[in-house]
Design a protein around this nucleic acid. Structure first.
Lengths: 107, 107
DNA sequence: CTGATCTACAACCACATGGTTGTACGTTAG
DNA sequence: CTAACGTACAACCATGTGGTTGTAGATCAG
């Protein structure tokens, strides 16, 4: 999934379909590259469950999948929280170290 | 930056140094691959500002950079929010469409 | 000083990736 | 029906990527 997000064209596509769902060919028109290239990008995003497709006549409408985005954001949040926890522990140790007389925050 | 996060080894490294900062060679010992490979991964993470290095004697201590992680999480949050806004607009339109008599939420 | 350790980096290789063009097939318009 | 459109997919190519080994510079231990 992070791999799918790693390409700027794909992130741009996500942004577009989040603002307004569009068919694959509508999307393709926005970029310099060929239709096939865009179609591939959409396929990658679809495999990563970042977007879904829905047939409408001969068109394939692309729209975003919020759940997956939320999942990604949560994971990064967890990383960040982990870091904050760690940073707290460090500063606890430091203050304990420099001011021996102070009370420990303990656990 | 998403590119840096796209590799599972690198995500694992982030997890480790977030839990406890370590030297490059300490990190390298945890993985099957060569030291040079791990060193490259760390370099990628450093270029993406996801970790920082700090010399200590002949060792290079790796530790995480919370700001960048927060930045990434925020971006995904924005995406998700965009989507929620969009979803709300859709459901507004649908309810307006199916129940003509209902009041518009308007704007 | 000498040897071991930690790091950095270059050179190389196999393979994945992002792009292309071409073909095929279902659907809509006239 | 026929032509145009929207899509999917295969084949191909250039480049990037993750891995390797080898070399070299710093720093520490004795």
């Amino acid at each position: 999934m992070f791999h799918a997000l790693a390409d700027s064209t794909r992130r741009d596509i996500i942004g577009r379909v989040l603002r307004a769902e569009q068919s694959v060919s509508e999307l393709a028109r926005r970029y310099e590259m060929s239709f096939a290239a865009v179609q591939k990008h959409v396929a990658v995003l679809e495999r990563a469950a970042l977007v879904r497709k829905q047939r409408r006549g001969r068109e394939q409408i692309v729209h975003g999948n919020a759940d997956t985005l939320r999942k990604a954001a949560r994971l990064l949040d967890r990383y960040e929280q982990l870091w904050r926890h760690r940073a707290q522990a460090i500063s606890d140790i430091l203050s304990e170290d420099s001011g021996k007389s102070e009370k420990r925050t303990d656990k």
